[in-house]
């Protein structure tokens, strides 16, 4: 079981402390998929970087990221971190072609990653590479291995990235908007590929996306991020049918899943910058159902059994 507890990142700028992420909590079972949903700048990518251990050098990093059989990722030493990245985790990046080194052949890079991750020789790695590519849908793996990244299409690059991510049978795979730079048809193919590998290997998947439909279709759980904190988590089913937090509700309304109503919905206002200091709920300015208390106090994280939410409309504290 993958657990993230109390993940907080704060930075100091000119003697002021700003919180990039505040108290992020979620959990995930093996074989499950969690979608992190939110707008640009909401902090969802930061959460993934933290989980991947890429922010460990930051001073203002607190919290626990727990994987089975592993101590807190955020406190690993560099050596342990490297081992963690090789064995426990996989990463599928947003821009596939940009994530392959342009001066090396695809086969060379893939083989290198395989050899490093599975602790085998380069020659063995090449054979594994070929089989892996074949299983991911490449009709002619040998040809692809000899090519350079700029000669491959976006979808092909993404498959290579997937191959690199799953070769060590990791416990967790993090996909950071894997389809946002791809065409519509390719998008669906890639999602299918990721899903089928997940079924086969059984890893937990964290999918970062701003596409709510994708989230609803592909995941078991969804966590909605806004302004550096989670505002709601729950199962995909619950969030699509009865979203609780006003932001989630607006998002659902904006997505194409709205039924009868054909008008275009949008949420007025701009996402809040992390540098603005605000005492109350960070969604206050754009919230359609705000209360007085929302302006002065930040809502607490409330567990409602089949999900969590941070909103004064739910489970208001009796003690003020």
């Amino acid at each position: 079981m993958i657990k993230v507890e109390g993940l907080t990142i704060s930075i100091k700028k000119k003697a002021q402390t700003y919180a990039l992420l505040r108290d992020v909590n979620f959990s995930l079972e093996q074989g499950q998929t969690l979608s992190l949903v939110g707008e640009s700048g909401s902090g969802k990518s930061l959460i993934t970087y933290a989980v991947l251990g890429m922010l460990n050098h930051l001073e203002g990093l607190e919290g626990v990221v727990g994987l089975p059989g592993q101590k807190n990722v955020l406190r690993l030493s560099s050596k342990e971190l490297r081992r963690f990245r090789r064995e426990q985790i996989g990463y599928i990046p947003q821009n596939p072609r940009e994530c392959l080194t342009p001066t090396l052949k695809v086969g060379s890079q893939l083989t290198e990653v395989i050899a490093v991750k599975t602790d085998r020789s380069v020659r063995a790695g090449r054979l594994i590479a070929r089989d892996l590519l074949q299983s991911l849908g490449f009709p002619d793996p040998e040809k692809v291995l000899k090519m350079y990244p700029h000669q491959l299409s976006g979808g092909m690059c993404q498959r290579v990235a997937i191959a690199m991510a799953v070769v060590s049978r990791p416990a967790l795979v993090v996909a950071d908007e894997p389809t946002s730079s791809l065409d519509l048809l390719i998008k669906q193919e890639i999602i299918k590929v990721i899903k089928s590998v997940q079924t086969e290997q059984g890893f937990a998947l964290i999918l970062v996306t701003h596409d709510l439909d994708l989230a609803f279709n592909c995941s078991n759980k969804i966590a909605v991020v806004y302004g550096g904190r989670l505002v709601e988590t729950g199962t995909a089913h619950n969030l699509s049918n009865k979203p609780r937090h006003p932001y989630t509700r607006s998002l659902v309304r904006c997505s194409s899943r709205t039924g009868a109503d054909k008008s275009i919905h949008y949420i007025p206002g701009e996402p809040v910058s992390i540098y603005t200091r605000f005492k109350g709920c960070r969604y206050f300015n754009r919230c359609l159902s705000r209360l007085e208390i929302c302006e002065t106090r930040e809502p607490a994280w409330v567990n409602l059994g089949d999900g969590q939410v941070a909103c004064w409309h739910y489970g208001r504290d009796e003690s003020t």
């Binding site: 990039l20 930061l46 970087y49 922010l55 050098h57 930051l58 560099s78 971190l81 992390i274 540098y275």
Partner: peptide, 9 residues
Amino acid sequence: MPFPLTPGA
């Protein structure tokens, strides 16, 4: 670790 990644603005 050398060359750390820093989110900045």
